[in-house]
Design a protein around this nucleic acid. Structure first.
Lengths: 386, 386
DNA sequence: TTTATTTTTTTCAGTAAGTGAAGTTATGTA
DNA sequence: TACATAACTTCACTTACTGAAAAAAATAAA
């Protein structure tokens, strides 16, 4: 017999969690609506909301004229100012730090200066953190955690950056370093996982139990939500889509093998390939523009790249059957040749059965996406611990 | 902070479930060992085991001389004869029915005759079921469910066979038909999922939270366990590894596209290809023998097939990072060219990081594998409902 | 204006499933 | 015989719920 699709299931196993999830999805709800959507009894909703109201996590909105019989509803919403979170993206050329509120809204942003060692990064961060809190007028005591998105290989459970080529880090306990420097709990994850968490909590996947997120940067990363939980894999390496072999006779990848997806569709490789073909471009938007104006080399590069990505994602779709695949375009391809080729390759390489039931969604990355996503990790951990 | 690796988590969320899981993994344990391995308090263990002992699900073994100080332990084990399950594999040329006990041991086996409609199948099954129970001397009242493994597309939640080419079925509510005919609860799933459930409960994956199972039959199927639960995908289509595109210029697949894995490495396609190349073989064992004796065509076919499978599984490994990949060889390749090529292709197409942490295990399918796996679905559902 | 109706929310007693700490049991050892 | 030790049991307590009845706050009807 099919189970009812209530909220009382992972990642939130309790009535408290179900209430929070419902209010993250719905902006505002009355107690009776909460009971309805979560499947939790009205009695329990009263209890839970009372606790949350006392703590200031929830607020009651002034009740409206009802316009019908019966006791009027009292709308509840999450108090965005109840808690704040810091988020840092480490590993790009610039290192943005943001502060978000409980609902994932970015309140303030700051770019960290260049740095050397992890300790120096921590020092720079402390300074920027203080400044950002001052300008945003946020009491330090209300910042409940910091999330760090690292482009590299991490051990999220231990807060360890196992390896980062960009940073030249190896087994750096960056979460601990940051937690001690800022005196707040710290969590880390890689870019792709961070983005997926952001999508799940504050983004385009709030209602989904199973989805995959693909992040297009200098390399390509992916992450999976399965049964409402981020799935990191047996040893934290799930989502390595960038090193799926697309063309065994292709060019050498820095992983030592040939023809990995990254070497064909990664932003870094694409820029190299364009340069080698005599095209002078600063970013992918310019490459797309060349293609738009009929440049055959640009068109070919983008088409081959999009096709390769599509083939890889087609495998992902058929293996994992996600409800939605969310592409995050951080390279500036926009809605052009690359995107079209990707979409077509996906459609051409999956069974008809998947076509109707898999949503493929592209989005241009907003400027503060990575640090905001990093902050959402801290938000998740905070809300999960409530 | 890393969580302790206790049993009290999905799929069993309760102390009862944790006790059952521990005893499925360990043959026999004392109460104190149960408390230790599950993380449940001794008090709760006493309570739970008492209930189970009363019901006859557990038995105490006569306590041994201790050989050391202190009160001696009392070993407990699951009473295999407490419950029995039927399992049927539908869709092969033969249709085996088995009865297993609570620990997954096959007690009796019967091959169902050819059949026509689902109703006729049910009728044949009822007869065979009675006979099997008589010869095995199992009281009908102790059979707690029947599992049905269908080669085709199923909706497990609704007990529906959505489509089966082999059977010419379309939207057949086979679970309901069987439940009514046999007067016991019935569940269905596809072959690959059934095998995965069997591996998790009674097989080579009892201790694993995340693993994938690959079933080599006339076509190739796969299934994933993630976080200790079978992951069926957003709409039940996860694991479609057989239609991953390997060679876009390859031969036409019956799905309408070209070069799917099934067309290169599926048993059916391989037999066709061997025949077309002038080789007369009855099964894959014979093709492997030809290769062993130096036949270049046989060697090439097997090598290409194994390579294709390996490439697909490499993608799976990098996307999902399972702890173990379990191959079930139902075609009789054995330990030959195919297996070697598969293993090599996997190793050549994954990052070094995955090499050390991913176990690749091949196994020849035992004769009653499918019906036994089907029965394990019923066993799982029964134990989950306790 | 008073009473009835309706819907939301709260109260309250009850339950399921645990935990921790103290007590009991059954054995070996001095 | 008394003590030490480890395995198990008992019991009082807690947490997180549920269901049913009661209370609250509005509109609608008499």
């Amino acid at each position: 017999m099919p189970a009812k699709d209530k909220l009382l299931k992972p990642p939130f196993r309790s009535a408290r969690g179900a209430v929070i999830t419902a209010l993250l999805r719905n902006e505002q709800l009355s107690r009776s609506e909460l009971s309805e959507t979560t499947g939790v009894s009205p009695a329990a909703i009263t209890e839970v909301t009372q606790t949350f109201l006392q703590r200031g996590l929830l607020v009651e909105l002034p009740s409206q004229a009802a316009g019908r019989r019966g006791r009027p509803t009292v709308q509840l919403r999450l108090q965005a100012s109840h808690a704040y979170f810091a988020g840092i993206s480490v590993g790009e050329s610039d290192m943005p730090l943001v502060i978000t509120d409980l609902r994932g809204k970015v309140l303030e942003r700051h770019n960290l200066a260049a740095y050397g060692t992890p300790a120096e990064l921590a020092k720079t961060t402390v300074k920027a953190f203080k400044e950002v809190l001052r300008t945003a007028r946020i009491p330090r005591s209300k910042v409940q955690g910091v999330g760090i998105a690292v482009s590299g290989i991490v051990n999220a459970a231990e807060g360890l950056c196992r390896y980062s080529a960009a940073l030249n880090w190896k087994n750096v306990p960056i979460a601990q370093v940051m937690a001690r420097a800022l005196h707040i709990p710290a969590w880390i994850d890689n870019d792709a996982n961070a983005v997926a968490v952001g999508e799940k909590f504050f983004g385009r996947a709030r209602d989904l139990e199973h989805f995959s997120s693909i992040v297009l940067e200098r390399t390509i990363g992916s992450a999976h939500y399965i049964n409402g939980m981020l799935y990191r894999g047996h040893d934290g390496s799930a989502g390595e889509i960038g090193h799926i072999t697309i063309d065994p006779k292709g060019v050498l990848c820095r992983c030592g093998r040939n023809g990995c997806l990254d070497t064909i569709a990664g932003g870094h490789a694409l820029r190299d390939a364009a340069k080698a073909a005599g095209l002078t471009i600063a970013n992918m938007r310019e490459l797309e523009e060349l293609a738009l104006h009929g440049n055959p080399t640009a068109t070919r590069l983008l088409r081959v790249a999009g096709n390769a990505l599509g083939v890889a994602v087609a495998s992902l779709v058929q293996l994992n059957n996600p409800q939605r695949v969310l592409f995050t375009d951080m390279e500036g391809f926009g809605n052009g040749v690359f995107r079209t080729a990707t979409r077509q390759a996906i459609e051409n390489n999956i069974l008809a059965r998947f076509l109707g039931s898999t949503q493929i969604i592209f989005n241009n990355a907003e400027p503060a996406l990575l640090p905001r996503s990093a902050a959402s990790i801290a938000a998740f951990e905070y809300l999960d611990s409530i």
